[in-house]
Simulated assay, not measured.
Amino acid sequence: MCGRPESKCKNGLQMHHITYERLGHENALTDLVSLCPACHVKIHKYYGRRRTA
Rank of each mutant, 00 (worst) to 15 (best):
Met1Thr: 04
Cys2Ala: 09
Cys2Ile: 12
Cys2Pro: 07
Cys2Phe: 08
Cys2Trp: 08
Gly3Lys: 05
Gly3Cys: 05
Gly3Met: 06
Gly3Thr: 04
Pro5Cys: 10
Pro5Gly: 07
Pro5Ile: 11
Pro5Leu: 09
Pro5Val: 11
Glu6Met: 05
Glu6Asp: 11
Glu6Val: 09
Lys8Ser: 04
Lys8Asn: 03
Lys8Gln: 09
Lys8Leu: 08
Cys9Tyr: 01
Cys9Lys: 05
Lys10His: 13
Lys10Arg: 15
Lys10Gly: 00
Asn11His: 12
Gly12Lys: 07
Gly12Ala: 06
Gly12Tyr: 02
Gly12Gln: 04
Leu13Met: 14
Gln14Tyr: 05
Gln14Thr: 11
Gln14His: 14
Gln14Ser: 08
Met15His: 08
Met15Gly: 03
Met15Ala: 12
His16Cys: 06
His16Ala: 06
His16Asn: 13
His17Glu: 05
His17Thr: 01
His17Lys: 01
Ile18Lys: 15
Ile18Arg: 15
Ile18Cys: 02
Ile18Asp: 05
Thr19Lys: 13
Thr19Glu: 15
Thr19Pro: 00
Tyr20Val: 08
Tyr20Cys: 03
Tyr20Gly: 02
Glu21Leu: 13
Glu21Ile: 11
Glu21Tyr: 02
Glu21Cys: 02
Leu23Lys: 15
Leu23Phe: 09
Gly24Asp: 01
His25Gln: 13
His25Val: 04
His25Arg: 12
Glu26Cys: 10
Glu26Lys: 04
Glu26Pro: 00
Asn27Trp: 00
Asn27Thr: 11
Asn27Met: 00
Asn27Pro: 00
Ala28Trp: 14
Leu29Cys: 13
Leu29Pro: 00
Thr30Val: 13
Thr30Leu: 13
Thr30Tyr: 11
Thr30Gly: 00
Asp31Pro: 09
Asp31Ala: 06
Leu32Met: 15
Leu32Val: 07
Leu32Asp: 07
Leu32Arg: 10
Val33Asp: 05
Val33Arg: 14
Val33Cys: 08
Ser34Cys: 14
Ser34Asn: 10
Leu35Arg: 06
Leu35Glu: 04
Cys36Lys: 03
Cys36Thr: 08
Pro37Glu: 08
Pro37His: 03
Pro37Tyr: 02
Pro37Gln: 08
Pro37Val: 08
Ala38Phe: 05
Ala38Asn: 15
Ala38Pro: 00
Cys39Asn: 05
His40Leu: 09
His40Cys: 12
His40Ala: 15
Val41His: 05
Val41Met: 03
Val41Gln: 04
Val41Arg: 09
Val41Ala: 04
Lys42Gln: 14
Lys42Thr: 09
Ile43Arg: 03
Ile43Gly: 03
Ile43Pro: 02
His44Asn: 07
Lys45His: 12
Tyr46Pro: 01
Tyr46Val: 12
Tyr46Lys: 15
Tyr47Leu: 14
Tyr47Ile: 11
Gly48Val: 13
Gly48Ala: 13
Gly48Asn: 15
Gly48Met: 12
Arg49Asp: 05
Arg49Val: 14
Arg49Gln: 05
Arg50Val: 14
Arg51Pro: 01
Thr52Phe: 09
Thr52Ala: 07
Ala53Asn: 06
Ala53Val: 11
